[in-house]
Amino acid sequence: MIEFRVVYTMWLREMKRWWRSKPRMIGSLSMPILWLVVMGIGLGSSFSIPNAAFNYLVFVSPGIIGMSLLFTSIFSGVSVIWDRQFGFLKEILVSPVSRTSIVIGKMVGSSTVSLITGLVILFIVILLNGVSSLVLNPISLLQTVAFMSLISFSFVSVGLVIASKLTNMEGFQMIMSLLVMPTFFLSGAMFPIENAPQWMKAVAHIDPLMYGVDGMRSSLTGISQYPMMVDFTILVAFCVVMVALASHLFSRIE
């Protein structure tokens, strides 16, 4: 049972916290912008992808949007650990509302934050590349936003799953280097997976972000590894599984 009132309450809190924390906001925007400029323009000026029809900046742009979504979403999901440490989680869990509503509310709130950040990056991507180097029309933008939302929801859920298992921030560094960074590097965000060695390709295919980045590349540049529907279907499946898992684990927290 999902109570809309509760979802809205949780969402509202997330928005207020985000709007109030300017350092966090600036931090989550400046890193992807730095990567876009340094990697996209800097590296791209002396490096190009073999047999590609477009330059490196165009190639890497959907990847950086994916990176921004991945980081913001996971951090935001994991932030429940802070709520637990500061005791606020207790205030939420003792209230007469369903746990599912609480989890969904947290997901919607965190995903909104992540999506807004992603949209700002998308805007900067368009500015840097120029309108003519990308496929830009209402449909391609809608498709891009759909992929962005799916990525956000999925990885907020991943963050929540981690938070339900981790009771303090000690394990966080490990999660970062063993889960988040590999997910980013193997997603094909920075280099085409097709040209990578066989074993790396194999690992990349179990990386859900790869399908997200490929989907956005497909909608924004028209060139991708898989048909858009394939990326979309796999990502939807992953998202549903993660949302269900996070809700389940959360309903059992004491």
Binding site: T9, L12, R13, K16, R17, G87, K90, E91, S95, P96
Partner: peptide, 29 residues
């Protein structure tokens, strides 16, 4: 849960929100 109010032994406020917002959050929940 609807019948009780509780002041926990340990702090349980959202430090980032204002006092009024904490109360508002509770009322909405």
């Amino acid at each position: 849960r609807m019948s009780i109010g509780i002041v926990f032994q340990d702090p349980s406020l959202d430090d980032e929100l204002t006092g009024r917002e904490n109360l508002d959050f509770h009322g909405r929940l």
